[in-house]
């Protein structure tokens, strides 16, 4: 049996299942014993998927206290001897994992988007050279496999309900040197990662980007964008799809005037239906689309809206 430590973040309901999916993909044939450690002690929903869920004793340890979380994880490793440690590639996950890797003296692969067995070795796949290529990275030396995983990339196949043992872990928190003062919301736009339908615009609709809104309302979706649009100041980076934006897995992605650079496609994972509207049928995104519409994207919006309203 393989043992796996999974770090969790509270505000992402699907994440525990996604990370467990990763554990099962790594150890294909073996059964996996899973220990969950919340980055933020107030975990609730993810409870019943793990064999053991660890809660640090005493004061709550907030996610930003990455040094103490790494310390707890290291102590857990001393005890269990994990074969693998999986951390979400969230802001704080990406600060905890490197600390833990140093503590355990193991290599860490950041922002993994794929896994492959190559000649009996696990390759962790991630974008490299700014998304122009992918790199398959292998671990060298002793100790557990360790990686951070992008949310949204490994959809969960099953719901492995388990009887979870809740374990209170005795822990003396050391001073973190960081004091929380406050938090304010950024202007609310809904997260494009939560949308089943994305109407996405690129360079081809730069001057008419606002028109996408009508189509997204008709299809009850949200508007997203390529980096060309974001860099032109037409839309906020929060709705950018791609390597330096967000990874999305909508059921439907309509790409309007998007070329399909490697960096953009990097942000599309498990899109079920891809429709590309482009004056150039040879744009790379068209070779991946289920439906290619050759023509002007704004004209397409007008005509399709008319057809829907008929």
């Amino acid at each position: 049996m393989k043992k796996c430590l999974v770090l969790l973040e509270n505000n992402q309901p699907n994440l525990p299942l996604e990370l467990l999916e990763v554990a099962h993909r790594i150890f294909e044939k073996s059964s996996v014993f899973t220990v969950g450690l919340p980055l933020d002690s107030q975990i609730a929903s993810s409870a019943e998927y793990f064999d053991v869920l660890v809660h640090a004793e005493g004061s709550q340890i907030p996610a930003y206290d990455t040094a103490n979380i790494a310390l707890i994880a290291a102590k857990l490793h001393e005890e269990y001897g994990f074969d693998c440690i999986i951390v979400p590639a969230t802001n704080y996950g990406r600060m905890v994992a490197p600390r833990l890797a140093m503590r355990l003296d193991v290599g860490l692969v950041a922002d993994v988007t794929g896994l492959e067995q190559v000649n009996g070795q696990l390759e962790m796949i991630r974008p490299a050279y700014s998304g122009k290529l992918f790199a398959g990275i292998v671990k060298k030396g002793m100790g557990p496999l360790m990686m951070t995983i992008r949310p949204g990339v490994f959809p969960a196949a099953t719901n492995p309900f388990k009887t979870t043992q809740h374990r209170v872990f005795p822990f003396q928190r050391k001073s973190s040197g960081i004091t929380f003062i406050g938090s304010r919301e950024k202007p609310a736009t809904k997260d494009i990662r939560d949308s089943e339908v994305l109407i996405s615009g690129g360079g081809g609709v730069l001057e008419h980007f606002s028109r996408l809104q009508d189509l997204s309302e008709a299809l009850r979706g949200q508007v997203s964008a390529s980096r060309r649009i974001v860099d032109s100041g037409v839309a906020s980076r929060k709705i950018q799809v791609g390597q330096s934006g967000k990874t999305v897995s909508p059921r439907l992605y309509i790409a309007l005037g998007i070329y399909g650079s490697v960096q953009h496609m990097e942000g599309l994972k498990n899109v079920q239906h891809l429709i590309s509207v482009n004056i150039d049928p040879l744009a790379p995104i068209c070779s991946l689309a289920d439906v290619v519409v050759v023509g002007d994207a704004v004209d397409f919006i007008d005509q399709l809206l008319k057809r829907i309203q008929r």
Binding site: F134, K139, M265, S287, D290, V294
Partner: peptide, 22 residues
């Protein structure tokens, strides 16, 4: 402690595809 084993370009392609005019 980590090593790049290979680099590659991701290939996608769809089996069935509809290509239409606007």
């Amino acid at each position: 402690k980590t090593q790049v084993n290979r680099t590659f370009v991701q290939k996608w392609s769809k089996e069935e595809k509809l290509i239409v005019q606007n």
